[in-house]
Design a binder for these strands. Sequence first.
DNA 1: CCGATAATTGGCAGCGCTGTCATAAACAAC
DNA 2: GTTGTTTATGACAGCGCTGCCAATTATCGG
Lengths: 328, 328
Amino acid sequence: MVTITDVAHRAGVSMKTVSRVLNNEAHVRPAVREKVQSAVAALGYRPNLAARQLAGHKSFIIGYPFNNPSAAYVTDILLGAARACRDRGYHLVSEPVDLLENAVEIIDRLISTLRPDGMILIPPLAEIPAVIDQIEKAGLPLVRIAGSVEGYGEALRIDDADIARQMVAHLAEQGHRRIAFIRPPAHHSQAASRFDGYCAGLSAAGIAFDPGIVVDGAFDVESGMAAARTLLDLPEPPTAIFASNDQMALGALRVAHQRKLDVPGDVAIAGFDDLPASAFAWPPLTTVRQPIEALGACAARILLGEAPDDAALTHQLILRESTLSPTA
Amino acid sequence: MVTITDVAHRAGVSMKTVSRVLNNEAHVRPAVREKVQSAVAALGYRPNLAARQLAGHKSFIIGYPFNNPSAAYVTDILLGAARACRDRGYHLVSEPVDLLENAVEIIDRLISTLRPDGMILIPPLAEIPAVIDQIEKAGLPLVRIAGSVEGYGEALRIDDADIARQMVAHLAEQGHRRIAFIRPPAHHSQAASRFDGYCAGLSAAGIAFDPGIVVDGAFDVESGMAAARTLLDLPEPPTAIFASNDQMALGALRVAHQRKLDVPGDVAIAGFDDLPASAFAWPPLTTVRQPIEALGACAARILLGEAPDDAALTHQLILRESTLSPTA
DNA sequence: CCGATAATTGGCAGCGCTGTCATAAACAAC
DNA sequence: GTTGTTTATGACAGCGCTGCCAATTATCGG
């Protein structure tokens, strides 16, 4: 194993100078800096994380505990954050939290054995006051993604309203005037603005808001099915259903199949989240893709003291056949 | 921060004795051991990983680099492995490898900065000789999951043949006699035995093997669609299609929809893998669930020197409506 | 009861790095 | 030229733990 002293010998400087170069500290002449860098490259030297952590006050580790909301979400955040970390010499340690009751215990162990330099939290962990308190009490920088809790400051999030508005505009463009909405559950604060966007989209298209075709959902397939039945049983059923998440949209799609309705001919269906399953559905589901990976990268950058790149954080409308009539 | 000396003082023993208790070494009297353990508990002491790693030869870290085959697979392995690690004081560090070309470089960095005690590899990384060589050259214990490469010994895997045989038995039980099979791509060694199981199932049910209803697939939706078209265009089309993975089964399902065929009335469809999308499909897809999480846990146990629990490693037939006629 | 052996415990160096402080060299101001 | 100030570099302790070895105490056979 190559150590810092090997590099120092080869470069003809002291250990300390090598350390300064590695940590980008000032007070090193450019010529010396280069000599050290080429010695590092020649020997393939990599600083030992454990030693750096023990000697200094940084661990070069970011903790990422998660409780499984959805595999795709977890890995997308992981991908974004881990890449951002890697580019800066950091490592991301993910730790599954099976039961929310164990969260504090597990995170406590993570903090005290690994001494991470920061933490990234996603829902539902990002919404648990005890967990937030614990991390702040440990003095660790924390970035919470998409979880907002009364009295706990701002979380990193993107506003869903505008893209929801765009979805309604898209449906209106396809000729729909009766556009139903399946609402998110009340406790889900992030998603609440999807309803605001729906309303904004209606008024932009000059369509009157009709409370009769707005029903409550619970973000699961069953509630989507129930909502779709309610809507399609109306004397004057909607010609388009915009569900506030994909699971409910897939539920609505299932009801349409059961009733032998043509999608999008008889009823167009749109969702929100772009689950992997949505691309496989028949017909493939029009939905909204969140920039999840970019969110993860952004969270990591904030922790590492960089300015986040807000421009990358934009939703994307994914138009598929569940709203696009083949003739269009 | 509580250190080992604090515990030593409180327990009235030397640092070294505390270390012995923590590492479960011999030569400590039960009474002393208990005294130390209660001091640890009272102070909430947790050994500092970095210090342990620097002083000893263990890092208590298992590396898990991955290149995204599917989010669900990656996280299931992660969950199983991370839990097994945690129960034994280890931590799992996952590292995404965006491009396979960078794999060696990224894994090299992981090894030399973190000095993990072992590595877990899943496909496709588990099948790259350069990566395997690299890890073995570093002297790290390695468990490869489900990837087998000529000349590189055995990987951790479960035989798919028996469950494929069961699937055919299930279809035969539903009255099918013409059961088509969409084969896995030739290079995918693990899946090859699915075909063997298919053949075994046929002969067990007393059905003659008909090469005319076995077509090649490429494990993606498009090849599933193509295969289904070929099969359904036959003068005497099959009444059931068993695809060797879910993506191809979903492709077949899509073709059935396009042709307004009733599933499973006109044609039953079954897959293999239990993708999340398969439960959301219409009709929900009959498939095979692999014990992925158990595989991850098993891999970790092997690395940590325990006997793997083979009993937990069994496939599961997931029967859903794509093969179960409502009347049945 | 004695020496021999085994079990138990402690002392201390040192893992590879960074923080602190000392020192040397370069430069500025007068 | 002298003093003060800044810049560049090195020496060395020590982070918290484990490995090695020594010291001490218990156990045993005869």
